[in-house]
Design a protein around this nucleic acid. Sequence first.
RNA 1: GCGAGAGUGGCGGAACUGGCAGACGCGCUGGACUUAGGAUCCAGUGGGGCGACCCGUGGGGGUUCAAAUCCCCCCUUUCGCACCA
Length: 826
Amino acid sequence: METKTARTDFVAVGEKWQKIWAETHLAEAPEFPGKKKYFVMPMFAYPSGDIHIGHFRNFSITDAIARKKMMEGYEVMHPFGWDAFGLPAEQAAIKRGLHPEEWTLGNIAVSKATLQTCGILFDWSREVTSCLPDYYRWTQWLFIQLYNRGLAYRKSATVNWCGHCNTVLANEQAEGDMCWLCHNPVGKRELVQWFFKITDYAERLLAGIDTLEGWPENLRTIQRGWIGRSEGVEIDFVLEGSDLKIPVFTTRPDTIFGVTFMTLAPESPLVGQLGISAERRRAVEEYIEQARNKTEIDRTALTEKDGVFTGRYAINPLNGERVQLWIGDYVLASYGTGAVMAVPGHDERDFDFAKKYGLEIKYVINTGRSDDFYRDKPAADPAYGTMMNSGPFDGAVGREAIHKVIEYCEKQGVGRARTNYKIRDWLISRQRYWGCPIPMVHCDSCGIVPVSETDLPVELPRKGIDFLPTGRSPLADAAEYMNTTCPKCGGAAQRDPDTMDTFMCSSWYFLRYTDPKNDRAIFDPKKATAWLPIDMYVGGIEHATGHLIYFRFFTKFLHDLGLLNIDEPDLRMFNHGMVNDAQGQKMSKSKGNVVSPIDLVRQYGPDPVRLAVLFASPSDKEILWSNAGITGTERFLSRADAFIRAAEFGEQVELDRTFPVEQLHESDRTAYLAYHLALKKIDADFERLQFNTHIAAIMELLNAVPADCGSAMQAHLAGNIVRLLAPLAPHVAEEWWSAVLGRGGSIFATGGWPVLDSAAIAAATVTIVCQVNSKVRAQLTIAPDIGREELEQLALAEPKIQKHLEGKKIRQTIIVPRRLINFVVG
RNA sequence: GCGAGAGUGGCGGAACUGGCAGACGCGCUGGACUUAGGAUCCAGUGGGGCGACCCGUGGGGGUUCAAAUCCCCCCUUUCGCACCA
């Protein structure tokens, strides 16, 4: 034990305990945990350079959770890994002549050292790195499993093309028509690419959301919207004078008698089969060409709708009416059938289009609007209502009307009920070098053949690659890589030149954590079963429609393969807020405003910095970072240090013992109750991951301990404050635990989490607010179980209350137990 | 445009299912200790008023004994989605 005048050096204890944790393998999780397991992890990180204060915040959250769960006796896994493929490595290679692998592994080494210096306790024995062959071998294996099950296929499609990155992008990577990585505008290209059939899982992905009760509601809403299920019917219109069916998807078949024209998407394959007359053909072709060259933004809300008449007509199968057939780029080729029945009376888009080209507008649903609605400012009326001007269906109402029309269509064989989804198949080919090679071979005689599983991994060639972008994959020009033999016939064949979207790598990494070194299988199902599902997953909301859908998809797929007994990967998801600079600007290297935690940690020690980050704001909110916050947490830790070091522990005190409240003298009782009230609050705060109030509660507790508190109580409190602080200020807590309290072993292994004395809280005196007409006039400190009458008498005896009651009549007395008494007077 | 959330001192933020608004911290003011302090400690700190008290949670209305909290309208702001038929 040290002398009482000693003070804790926060920097030195940081280094000391990080070393001890590493030497004692504190963070290493067992291969097979028992029932009381806890799997907590932050999202896979891209090793872009070094860790910044935002990472530090995110990892501090999972670290705090992991440590508290350890104290609670759980077997905890808190792993980490690197999403190590990706474009920045390639760009660095071009700029500095470094090989992408060298650059990536160098960044990983630096970042890992930083994380350790910050005191984040990851189980590094389970580290995974997606760009290493022993990892991507299994990414390739998964590709082949998907292929074998018919879930990976090639198709020619108009795809998002980022000219800056020189690669295609999945839809969710080109949101708002900007590349998610470089923020440059995204164009279009027609290319043959690999896709995963995630749409086959749309219904299950949607239904599963209902079970994810531990996920933030807004995240669930975003996912539902992204999947975008809608129920309706596919109805066949027929090209006039032919047998050609032109199917349309609609959710409003009750408006079908209001169809006055039809619109096809410019890319619709049907356009070529319409038999457009020679004199019209030029105009149509020009329009299609022009539409193709527009960006997605130009084609959406910002501009007036336009289109071109084909000169052909279609027949409405319900009433036999002949309607003009148009082409318009407000119709999306990729949704539904790429054709719509236009009902300008009840659809705003069709209405705008009809207005522009002077097409007829019919109203066939009575929604109860006044005639002025249509007369004064004619508009579309999309509301549900009663069918009218609709022949035999007149009078049918709302959803029932919809069902009637669908039923009729099915009976007549002109339509069938259908469910459509907005979610598209996942485009995974990338025309880049630094990614996981696609394990497929193109053979002239056998076609596309997967590489034999025993030949995995297909390794990236290291030499002879020119990274300078040419618009096609750099691998395509590496003859040694490209030329191979067909796994089926043994003849000469070519490899696939593309690599995979990095979201593929991050869709299954959490599974590899359960069995990271396995070289015979992707993982041992027994180990995965023992650890999964993830109990707490922490990451940014920006992955709502990408990663967080893909990893659910893969989990379901692996479940279907029989490798997993679960169908959802993660029980609880927490979205942390961002850390921006003091002006609210995102931190970036180019702006030069990146705050590195490592400088702060070296100056103040890891714990004051971590407390400052956690104290600044609730974990799910944005932080405008300023170093000033560290002043407060450093002071607080110093005061706690002084308090803890002043305590006389003598023999080891039993930290979970209870004290009989009624026998304690006043100061001890005050201190003891303050402690248990703080503990109660902290337990609730931790459940919500609200660390700012957790810290505040300990500060408050420290402020509340009376100076003349007895030495036994002081030691009791000091020891417990150490435990309450441990998940958030782990290095200092360890130091106190061993050097000041004289305990052996790590507080995280043996300290235990404090136990609440709820009986003491229940018996504690309470402050009752006394009001007259809802205005506070006095306070009473009384026993909690006092009777109504007694409380009323006490309140009435208060001089201030008497003063405000003077000359008035009490009309009502309201008592809220343990809180207040209110006299309503008139 | 549609959907969801947010708006509280000079600042970050507290306030459980309606019950003392401003916990906790920063900053600031005054004081103590110091050769010195950007260290530490003590006191104060929403506004108004000498005071009893009054007013205060973006603005306006409402419900209630009681509203930051619930309801309606408006303003500002953040984030999703953005022709999905």
